Amino acid sequence: MKRRTKGILSALIVLAVMLSCLPARAGDAWEQAIGPREWRFPRDHGDHRQFKTEWWYFTGNLVDAAGNRYGYQLTFFRHGIRQAVPPPRNSWSLRDVYPAHFAVTDSTRSKFFFTDRISRSGPGLAGSQEGRMNVWNLNWFARMEQEEIRIRARHGQTELDLTLRPGKPPVLHGQNGLSRKGPRAGQASYYYSFTDLKTAGRLKTAQTGRTVEVRGTSWFDHEFGSNTLAKDQTGWDWFSLHFSDGRELMIYLLRKRDGTLEKESSGTLVEADGTYRHLGLSEIAVNVLGTWHSRKTGGRYPSSWQIDVPAADLSFRLAPSLQDQELTTEGSTGVNYYEGAVEGRGVLKKQAVTCEGYIEMTGYAGSIGGLF
């Protein structure tokens, strides 16, 4: 049964890629992230189907009553196959596919779990709602009601059920939410985050077989666009970090084939009061101190960093909470990448600080092509 399910999922991926490569027809032109956007919340927590690709991205660092530490990732993707569905339309008409990824890091026990899936739009299988955050993939979901976000995922003996409450307003990255990924027109996305989500709920892992109450801090990214990466770009390194003094830091570095960084790489520094500022590439220095080699994919990933942001008087070292946090998503997007909990310590404005958060690294173990 498992082999048959994987075959069906693989067929969906192949179909999606083939359809994506077909010439555009009238009414199938995807909107580009080009100019300023008039943001409206909670409307913009919902989907934006005029754009080809969109994701709702949750990561967080948790602790239980016994002091055991965990990290988690729950990501919902929407990838447009066609802008307009030709008649006759029905509930099975294929317009979008919905991959999703779910991972849990048990830092205390040095265990990592991940799974992935892909579903098509159809009667209740997977989808996203316009005008409010409500995205689901079979029995996984993320839903916002009033000021709280409820997320839930379950696979086998691993289960996550959390309530997230924003401690700060949405943060708009780049230029008022327009996050450039390169020099070409439209090579960008619209991108915002909840950087400080007070988190509480329940977590169950296969290692213990029991459900524990957990608390912590989460980060939410919502990004949508139609034309982001160029052929000379090999991947990216993304950091989302919470500091012990109440600040947050996002860094997004795009790597090019010639070994340089795309000049549109950037970051955002969020103050304890919720105000924030854009950081250009010249204001960020990230030096790799060590690497980790994956036996599964052969990829060699950075595994520790020295990061300096002189304009913020910030300097710190960072490392994964657990070395192997690599995802091989052959059941959904077909991309090998690293998404893991990290922790560090350093100095911010001459005061000692600690930090925790997440890092995502792509392009170190194969192509980032395919659906994304």
Score class of each variant (00 low, 15 high):
residue 3 R to Y: 10
residue 6 K to M: 15
residue 11 A to E: 01
residue 14 V to H: 07
residue 15 L to A: 15
residue 26 A to N: 11
residue 27 G to P: 04
residue 31 E to H: 01
residue 38 E to P: 01
residue 41 F to V: 15
residue 42 P to A: 08
residue 42 P to T: 09
residue 45 H to G: 02
residue 46 G to F: 04
residue 49 R to Y: 01
residue 51 F to P: 01
residue 52 K to M: 13
residue 53 T to W: 04
residue 54 E to F: 07
residue 57 Y to L: 08
residue 57 Y to N: 09
residue 58 F to D: 00
residue 58 F to Y: 14
residue 64 D to A: 09
residue 66 A to I: 02
residue 66 A to F: 06
residue 78 R to M: 02
residue 87 P to Q: 04
residue 89 R to F: 01
residue 93 S to G: 13
residue 93 S to F: 05
residue 95 R to H: 08
residue 96 D to Q: 12
residue 96 D to G: 09
residue 100 A to C: 08
residue 103 A to H: 06
residue 109 R to N: 14
residue 112 F to E: 09
residue 115 T to R: 11
residue 118 I to D: 02
residue 127 G to L: 13
residue 129 Q to T: 14
residue 130 E to Q: 07
residue 132 R to W: 09
residue 132 R to E: 08
residue 136 W to T: 03
residue 138 L to K: 11
residue 140 W to N: 07
residue 147 E to A: 15
residue 149 I to R: 00
residue 150 R to F: 13
residue 152 R to P: 00
residue 152 R to E: 06
residue 155 H to I: 05
residue 159 E to K: 11
residue 162 L to F: 05
residue 163 T to E: 11
residue 164 L to D: 01
residue 165 R to F: 05
residue 167 G to C: 11
residue 168 K to Y: 10
residue 169 P to R: 10
residue 172 L to A: 10
residue 176 N to I: 01
residue 182 G to P: 05
residue 183 P to R: 13
residue 186 G to W: 11
residue 186 G to L: 08
residue 186 G to H: 10
residue 190 Y to S: 05
residue 195 T to G: 08
residue 198 K to P: 03
residue 201 G to F: 09
residue 201 G to V: 10
residue 203 L to N: 07
residue 204 K to G: 05
residue 207 Q to R: 12
residue 207 Q to A: 15
residue 208 T to I: 06
residue 211 T to G: 03
residue 211 T to I: 12
residue 213 E to A: 13
residue 217 T to Y: 02
residue 220 F to L: 15
residue 226 S to N: 07
residue 236 W to H: 00
residue 238 W to S: 09
residue 251 I to V: 15
residue 253 L to H: 03
residue 255 R to F: 10
residue 255 R to P: 00
residue 258 D to Y: 12
residue 260 T to K: 11
residue 260 T to Y: 04
residue 265 S to P: 12
residue 267 G to S: 04
residue 277 R to K: 07
residue 279 L to I: 06
residue 282 S to N: 15
residue 286 V to A: 13
residue 288 V to E: 11
residue 291 T to E: 05
residue 294 S to V: 07
residue 295 R to Y: 11
residue 298 G to V: 15
residue 304 S to I: 07
residue 306 Q to A: 15
residue 307 I to G: 01
residue 310 P to H: 12
residue 311 A to Y: 10
residue 314 L to G: 03
residue 317 R to F: 01
residue 318 L to Y: 12
residue 320 P to Q: 00
residue 321 S to F: 00
residue 323 Q to K: 05
residue 327 L to P: 01
residue 327 L to Q: 02
residue 331 G to H: 10
residue 334 G to A: 08
residue 335 V to W: 01
residue 341 A to L: 12
residue 342 V to T: 03
residue 350 K to R: 11
residue 353 V to Y: 07
residue 356 E to C: 13
residue 357 G to S: 08
residue 367 S to H: 05
residue 367 S to L: 09
residue 369 G to I: 10
residue 370 G to C: 06
